[in-house]
């Protein structure tokens, strides 16, 4: 008997609290932790911005239409993910796999758009140590917040790739799709906060 199976073999606790498996519960707790990490960064940004005073007007630095398009892409990928999870739950492995691949595509488009945005920002003179628009902390927070979020999107895409490849090999589980989906929705939700707090406010 494998070592992990020992823990699972004779679970005798009756109905588990919240009626979820412990894998899913752990994903939820992990999301809470990760959300607080972003909260830490966004609160830091708020504190420094208020302390600085001369913050640039974002619409003069970024093309908000472009950022809104990025947001739209990411939210669309959340929708395809939801379809994938539902299909997996109903046992339609093929459909689920198709939607997961669509989600991955959405993730890559988002990352590509972000890379383009960074290039543009850097070409306009925005660097880690300073920028032409105002306080140097503006570009610093831009890089760290969007960068950290982009890193999360990349992680999410990697997780989804693992799920998709496993599905292609016939080793797929609806619970796995759901957990990956939970993470993906979280990453998208964080972007909404980044979009609202960094680009719009």
């Amino acid at each position: 008997m494998s070592q992990t199976a020992i823990a699972q073999a004779d679970w005798g606790g009756g109905a588990s609290p919240f009626g979820v498996t412990w894998q899913k519960m752990m994903m939820w707790f992990f999301i809470v932790t990760d959300a607080l990490l972003f909260a830490g960064l966004l609160v830091s940004y708020g504190v420094v911005r208020i302390a600085t005073g001369d913050w640039p007007t974002q619409s003069e630095v970024f093309s908000l239409t472009y950022i809104a398009t990025m947001t739209f892409v990411l939210i669309t990928s959340s929708a395809t993910m939801a379809c994938g999870v539902k299909a997996a739950e109903l046992g339609r492995a093929k459909t689920a796999s198709k939607f997961v691949w669509l989600t991955i595509l959405g993730g890559f488009i988002f990352l590509g758009m972000q890379a383009y945005e960074w290039t543009h920002f850097i070409q306009d003179g925005g660097g880690l140590l300073g920028n032409p628009w105002g306080s140097p902390t503006f570009s610093q927070f831009f890089f760290i917040i969007t960068g950290f979020h982009g890193f999360h999107v990349l992680t999410g895409v990697t997780v989804l790739l693992v799920v998709a490849i496993r599905a292609a090999m016939g080793r797929y589980s609806p619970a796995g799709v759901e957990n990956a989906g939970l993470y993906w929705h979280f990453v998208d939700l964080v972007w909404v906060f980044v979009f609202a707090l960094f680009y719009l406010v």
Binding site: W11, G13, W22, M25, F29, T33
Partner: peptide, 12 residues
């Protein structure tokens, strides 16, 4: 921490 919380909630 993740392990503790999940174990206590689900494996009693």
């Amino acid at each position: 921490g993740l392990n503790f919380v999940v174990t206590i909630l689900n494996l009693r």
